[in-house]
Simulated scan of single mutants.
Amino acid sequence: MTHHTESVAPEGVSIDGKTIALLVTDGVELLELTEPLAAIRGAGGTPKIVSPKKSSLQAMKGDWEHADHFDVDHQLGTVSASDFDALVLPGGTLNADSLRIDEKAQEFVSGFFSESKPVAAICHGPWILTEVGQVSGRRMTSYAALRTDLSNAGAQWVDEEVVVDGGVVTSRTPKDLDAFNRVFLELVAARA
Score class of each variant (00 low, 15 high):
residue 150 L to H: 11
residue 91 G to H: 04
residue 88 V to S: 06
residue 144 A to I: 09
residue 74 H to T: 05
residue 86 A to W: 07
residue 114 S to D: 15
residue 120 A to C: 06
residue 74 H to D: 11
residue 81 A to C: 06
residue 125 G to W: 13
residue 118 P to Q: 00
residue 83 D to H: 06
residue 95 N to P: 08
residue 169 V to I: 06
residue 108 F to C: 03
residue 118 P to K: 00
residue 98 S to G: 11
residue 124 H to S: 04
residue 132 V to H: 03
residue 125 G to M: 08
residue 70 F to T: 05
residue 149 D to Q: 15
residue 156 Q to I: 06
residue 127 W to E: 05
residue 91 G to T: 00
residue 122 I to A: 04
residue 102 D to N: 15
residue 162 V to D: 13
residue 85 D to W: 12
residue 145 A to C: 11
residue 157 W to I: 00
residue 148 T to P: 10
residue 89 L to K: 04
residue 71 D to L: 12
residue 101 I to A: 15
residue 134 Q to H: 10
residue 126 P to W: 07
residue 65 E to L: 14
residue 94 L to Q: 11
residue 111 G to F: 10
residue 119 V to M: 04
residue 105 A to D: 13
residue 130 T to N: 10
residue 96 A to M: 05
residue 157 W to C: 01
residue 129 L to C: 12
residue 88 V to K: 03
residue 143 Y to A: 04
residue 119 V to S: 07
residue 124 H to I: 00
residue 80 S to D: 14
residue 160 E to K: 05
residue 88 V to C: 06
residue 166 G to D: 07
residue 97 D to G: 13
residue 161 E to L: 04
residue 115 E to Q: 09
residue 127 W to R: 02
residue 166 G to F: 02
residue 115 E to F: 06
residue 115 E to L: 09
residue 121 A to S: 09
residue 147 R to L: 08
residue 108 F to R: 00
residue 159 D to E: 15
residue 169 V to T: 07
residue 83 D to E: 08
residue 111 G to M: 05
residue 130 T to I: 03
residue 129 L to T: 07
residue 103 E to C: 10
residue 135 V to S: 11
residue 128 I to W: 10
residue 98 S to F: 15
residue 99 L to I: 11
residue 158 V to D: 11
residue 80 S to I: 01
residue 134 Q to P: 08
residue 113 F to A: 05
residue 68 D to W: 14
residue 86 A to Q: 03
residue 110 S to M: 03
residue 115 E to V: 01
residue 122 I to L: 07
residue 161 E to D: 12
residue 156 Q to A: 12
residue 95 N to G: 05
residue 129 L to E: 09
residue 121 A to H: 11
